[in-house]
Design a protein around this nucleic acid. Structure first.
Lengths: 174, 174
DNA sequence: CTTATTGCAAAGTGTTTGCATCTTA
DNA sequence: TAAGATGCAAACACTTTGCAATAAG
């Protein structure tokens, strides 16, 4: 099996799994399993980057899948509720989303020059989160940590646009 | 000298100092020192909590200080540029601001039930920030860490509204 | 057949912009 | 007195809402 075939298989498995999670959520919540909802889920899981509602709308329009913006906003609320999608506010007013099933918890580094977003993991955040919850008697459900700045190396090379490649850093120790 | 007189003195000193910082910024940038700009600075430094543009507009209107929303948006950009004010996005679309001169760097804990914001400090954030900048060759200029959840203790007591009192926690060790 | 869901367009909300008027330097 | 700043209202961008038509259960 070639690498891309394996990856395609993984992608199919993932889609199958998230459809199942969504189905269970809809049933348990007494909501209807409409074709629009599953089409939106599928499109979202085909996107690698962060996206906003309008680019999702345009992507689906381009692929001849007609759903209204209202339905996108509505459906994404449900996908947030069952943790299949995560919402972000990276300093701009517009909300950005990303698929989040089976994704390791991560935080973001945002280049203010080219607007690109990189991801990183650091276990200390989890420690701070749970410790602060205890100290302040708060039930912390989630957090958002964004580091803002400029990509130095890429600025040296001229434009930042080349930074877009996903780059993920994980620390395992403390 | 009574305690409140001392505090009033401190408040006056602070206002004097921030006026000076703003003046220097405006001069160095070749911008005009208009009465509106200093009035806005004074009002902002009279606010203890986080605020949005519209509540600042209404506060100033109430105090019979007429400035337009356009001028508020314009001036706050300058105050951000010289670090006298900090901007936040706490998950909602609306931007929130706070005065930030001589304020210790801090992060936020947001109650999703009552929308109240608490502040805390943890030196590990600074460590993560500078380390990530080095690893990813990023020049990190600032960050935003928000912990979202529910205030447990206050929920037990009924409403969350009593939580509004500013509560700040600082860790000095790692 | 009942009622949730959809699509459309209208209304909201926070922010930005264009332009005539005013004012700082 | 010339360039910048202000105030107003219109324009914008993103999101939410109302409602008639549709379709899931």
């Amino acid at each position: 099996m070639t690498k891309s075939a394996a990856s395609a298989q993984t992608q199919t498995d993932l889609l199958e799994k998230v459809r199942q999670v969504f189905t269970e959520y809809l049933e348990q919540a007494g909501l209807r399993k409409t074709p629009e909802r599953f089409a939106i889920l599928r499109e979202i899981y085909s996107i690698e980057d962060h996206f906003d509602i309008d680019s999702l709308f345009l992507l689906m329009k381009e692929r001849k899948i007609h759903v209204s913006r209202a339905t996108l906003y509505n459906t994404i609320e449900h996908l947030l509720a069952c943790d299949l999608v995560t919402k972000h506010q990276f300093g701009k007013n517009m909300a950005l989303f990303e698929k989040s099933y089976a994704y390791k918890q991560h935080d973001h580094l945002i280049c203010m020059d080219c607007d690109k977003v990189m991801e990183f993991c650091d276990p200390r955040i989890q420690q701070i989160q749970s410790m602060m919850g205890d100290i302040l008697d708060f039930q912390v459900t989630h957090h958002s940590l964004n580091l803002f700045g400029k990509c130095r190396k890429l600025l040296r090379n001229g434009t930042c646009e080349h930074l877009a490649k996903k780059k993920q850093v994980t620390l395992t120790g403390s």
